[in-house]
Write a protein that binds this DNA or RNA. Structure first.
Length: 333
DNA sequence: AACATCATCAACCGCCATCCA
DNA sequence: GTGGATGGCGGTTGATGATGT
């Protein structure tokens, strides 16, 4: 019957987003919230289709996104979840706060797949490759199996929820408590109560990762990701100085909100800077003294720039921090 | 220094699911 | 029940930077 295109593609811009476009989109969403993406470009003054706007926002501009490489723990989670869910990236991403399906998909395709293959594990089936024994002579296959691959019968009968000590307080020096259980598991019925593997419960990360080749990729520890916004050139953000991520470039302040998801109220928290890395049950987003004023600045900034100038700056001074998976934007507006 | 190749990831495309009139 | 509108998802592409020759 011929489906209509998602938008009138005539005259619409494609390709990489400019800082100017980002700014318009951010401004619009900050002032109006998220609704009807189809209407967003017109209202925001963008020559993009709504789909493109939604993608740009969800994959890049959302302030609750983590940047940087996946931590070892996150990688392990991805592998494990992939073994259970397959290429359902959005489901996998829903268990990794601050990560998008696109990001995980990319990471899988560019990093994890190779690593698994290197280890003699089929990244699709998560079973040993036929020639795995030859490939991994230096590493006992049994060990790999124990560490990275769930026994087949376990995959099939994966029903009993196994918890990863979800109730313990966050230790900022340890891996974040990313867990399938702690995530929104309301879809548990549909997901057959996907849970962490027994390995997660009983094994140390170092054991988990034993044999998992991480030396090729500089590991970013959570405490590195959870950078305070102090000026630093050692930001772990993967964004280069040419980043087009306005939110990053803007040096926007952090703020915090309660982890009590039932109360989505935002807590603009200007204090506790020295305790920033101690997630005392709050999730840091941006942190600074004048968030509101900077927000106003962002929204009210004149548009007479050439697009780049406004957002140029020592972007490394603003480091995106770990946040909750639930977008603040949804509850904020 | 110049060119070729590889790796990464943002963005696009097309399909599917859901909602609603 | 039907079909259009919209949002969401997963696969793929292509631009760009990094690395190798």
């Amino acid at each position: 019957m011929g489906r209509q295109p998602c938008c009138d593609k005539v005259g619409l811009k494609k390709g990489p987003w400019t800082a100017e476009e980002d700014k318009k989109l951010i401004t619009f969403i900050l002032t109006n919230g998220q609704y009807c993406w189809r209407a967003v470009p017109k209202l925001a003054g963008l020559l993009r289709c709504g789909k493109s706007c939604r993608l740009r926002w969800t994959n890049y501009l959302r302030p609750d996104l983590k940047r940087g490489l996946l931590s070892e723990y996150e990688e392990k989670m991805v592998i494990d979840l992939h073994a259970q869910l397959g290429n359902r990236w959005s489901k996998i991403a829903s268990h990794l706060p601050g990560r998008t399906d696109n990001e995980i998909k990319n990471h899988w395709n560019t990093h994890i797949k190779k690593k698994l293959k290197k280890m003699g594990i089929d990244p699709i089936t998560h079973k040993p490759l036929p020639n795995a024994t030859q490939q991994t002579q230096n590493q006992p296959q049994q060990e790999q199996q124990q560490q990275l691959h769930k026994p087949p019968e376990e995959e099939q009968n994966y029903q009993q929820p196994l918890q990863v000590d979800f109730d313990t307080k966050v230790d900022p020096n340890k891996e974040p408590e990313i867990s399938v259980e702690s995530s929104n598991i309301s879809e548990a019925k549909e997901e057959e109560q996907i849970t962490a593997t027994p390995q997660f419960e009983t094994m140390e990360l170092s054991q988990l990762m034993n044999g998992f080749c991480t030396d090729e990729v500089p590991i970013i520890e959570p405490n590195e990701i959870l950078m305070p916004c102090a000026p630093s050139s050692s930001s772990t953000s993967t964004s280069s100085s040419n980043s087009t991520n306005i939110l990053e470039d803007l040096q926007l302040p952090d703020f915090e909100w309660s982890c009590d998801y039932s109360d989505s109220s935002l807590i603009i928290n200007n204090n506790n800077h020295e305790d920033k890395n101690n997630n005392n049950n709050t999730v840091t987003l941006w942190d600074d003294d004048d968030f509101i004023s900077k927000l106003n600045w962002l929204i009210n900034e004149d548009d007479d720039c050439d697009g780049n100038q406004v957002f140029d700056g020592p972007l490394t001074q603003f480091s995106r921090t770990v946040t909750d998976s639930e977008s603040w934007a949804f509850g904020l507006f």
